[in-house]
């Protein structure tokens, strides 16, 4: 392969990594704060894409305001779901799981009813290309890398330097202890759901500008998100980043070398094997 092709598939991989990391961060946040694998996260993501679509097509927004409004809106949906569906089942992960599974069907059916099953699409305003050392780089992919990693840094700063962020860290490390220290678990859970869902919406907004969107797009996102957090280690932010980078690069670069299917197979097989030999993930500890 020539230089440009390598650089482009790398950039492609990084863009996909950015998306995966955003999805996985949401899953990881909710998992470590609320103790549940939120498997309707993919549906939240799908809702995010539809919000952006309708804000652009029906409300006449341009892409960036649409993305911001959709992000806030989906974050609020997250807060609502936490309050109504997850809080009553805190400490009962089995039923929370059932709730989460049911939410998949409920949300998906609602969107199917409102928007129909046909794929839809909108275009990215980030057209054009950039030349760096003679390598052609598409803006619409580069912007994902920038936003994705930018949000990652923001999230890190939030956790590191705000009181709520520190409370999140405390809860993720020890649930009972945190309650004793007077941390408001209700509030922190709501924040975690808000952030998690908002991040998913950002990812979905960008995905919609690259590919088409449909009511069933969530399961793909969920698979990848779960794969990433398993690869990296459940409940760890660093793990989500590492897992996202690895899987994004596999999915971004391998198809250029082999086929999409093979890339998919390699990804799944890698995860099953890692789970069998290292259930705590690459970054997780025993």
């Amino acid at each position: 392969m020539e230089m440009t092709a390598i650089a482009q598939s790398l950039l492609n991989g990084l863009a996909i990594s950015g998306i995966y990391i955003l999805i996985a961060l949401g899953l990881t946040l909710v998992l470590s704060i609320m103790g549940i694998v939120q498997i309707s996260h993919g549906e939240i993501y799908m809702v995010g894409a539809y919000c952006v679509y309708y804000l652009i097509k029906s409300a006449g927004f341009s892409f960036i305001p649409a993305l911001i409004v959709a992000t806030l809106f989906v974050g609020c949906i997250g807060v609502f779901l936490e309050r109504v569906f997850f809080r009553p089942f805190r400490g009962d992960p089995d039923r929370a799981m059932t709730v989460s599974i049911s939410l998949i069907l409920i949300i998906q059916n609602i969107v199917l009813f409102l928007a129909g099953g046909n794929p839809k699409s909108y275009s990215s305003p980030f057209t054009g290309v950039l030349f760096i050392f003679g390598i052609v780089i598409a803006w619409k992919r580069l912007i994902i890398v920038i936003v994705g990693f930018g949000l990652l840094v923001l999230l890190f700063l939030f956790i590191r330097y705000t009181k709520t962020g520190q409370a999140m860290l405390a809860i993720s490390q020890e649930r009972e202890g945190a309650a004793l220290q007077g941390i408001n678990i209700d509030f922190v859970s709501a924040v975690a759901m808000f952030l998690g869902c908002a991040l998913a919406a950002v990812a979905a907004g960008f995905i919609g500008s690259l590919f088409s969107i449909s009511p069933t797009m969530g399961s793909f996102a969920l698979m990848k998100g779960i794969a990433v957090i398993i690869l990296g280690g459940l409940g760890s932010i660093a793990g989500a980043v590492i897992g996202g980078l690895i899987l994004g690069l596999i999915d971004g670069v391998l198809p250029a070398i082999t086929s999409t299917y093979t890339a998919g197979l390699v990804g799944f097989a890698a995860i099953i094997i890692i789970l069998l030999f290292r259930p705590q993930g690459i970054w997780g500890h025993e």
Binding site: V37, M97, M223, I226, A227, I230, S259, Y261, T262, G264, L265, F268, A269, I271, I272, L275, L276, P279
Partner: peptide, 28 residues
């Protein structure tokens, strides 16, 4: 035999991935 060594959600997840692999292999 390998899958059942995993517990709870981990088991469920590998079974999902197993199913996805079946789909990919039949497509391929």
């Amino acid at each position: 035999f390998p899958f059942m060594r995993l517990k709870g959600i981990y088991f469920s997840i590998v079974t999902v991935f197993f199913s996805e692999m079946v789909v990919l292999i039949t497509q391929q």
